[in-house]
Simulated scan of single mutants.
Amino acid sequence: MASPAAHVTAFLFLFPTGLCRLFRSSSLYLQNPSLYASKSCYLSNPKYKNLHLYILCIALPIASFSEFFLFLTLSAHPTYTFSLFHQCLSLFFFWVLLILFISREFLDPSAINDGLLFVYAAIAFLVEYSAIGKGVAHFGVGGVVYDLLGKLTLVCAGCCFVLSLKPASFWADFVLSCGLVFKGTWVLQAGLNLYTDVFGFKGCRKITVLPSRDSADVVCDLKEDGLRGVALVNLLFVVHAILILVLGLVVFGLLSSYKNLRCDEASGPLLAELNSESIRMLAGHADLEIE
Rank of each mutant, 00 (worst) to 15 (best):
M1H: 07
S3F: 05
P4C: 13
A10F: 13
L12P: 02
F13P: 05
F13Q: 06
F15Q: 04
P16S: 14
P16W: 10
T17R: 07
G18S: 02
L19C: 02
C20L: 01
C20H: 11
R24S: 12
S26C: 06
L28C: 15
S34L: 10
S40D: 02
K47R: 14
L51V: 15
A59V: 14
I62C: 12
A63L: 14
F65R: 07
F68W: 14
L70Q: 11
F71N: 06
T73F: 08
F93K: 01
V96H: 12
L97R: 04
F101L: 05
E105L: 09
F106G: 05
F106Y: 08
I112K: 13
N113V: 14
G115I: 03
A122S: 14
A122R: 05
F125N: 10
L126H: 06
L126S: 15
S130Y: 06
S130A: 10
S130I: 01
A131H: 06
V136T: 12
V136P: 00
A137K: 09
V141N: 02
G142H: 01
Y146V: 04
L152R: 12
T153W: 01
L154V: 04
C156Q: 08
F161Q: 07
S164M: 06
W171P: 05
F174R: 07
V175Q: 02
S177A: 10
C178L: 14
G179D: 15
L180A: 10
L180Y: 09
L180W: 14
K183A: 03
T185K: 12
A190F: 07
A190T: 07
L194A: 01
F199M: 13
G203P: 02
K206I: 05
P211E: 03
S212C: 08
R213W: 04
S215P: 05
D217M: 02
V219F: 15
K223R: 15
E224K: 09
D225A: 07
G226W: 00
V233D: 00
F237C: 00
V238D: 03
V239G: 01
V239F: 09
H240C: 13
L243I: 10
I244E: 06
L247M: 06
G248V: 04
L249E: 12
L249P: 04
V250M: 09
G253K: 14
S256Y: 13
S257D: 12
Y258A: 04
Y258K: 07
C263N: 03
G268F: 02
P269V: 14
A272S: 13
E273F: 09
N275D: 12
S276A: 11
E277A: 15
R280Y: 06
M281Q: 15
G284Q: 08
A286D: 07
A286H: 07
E291P: 08
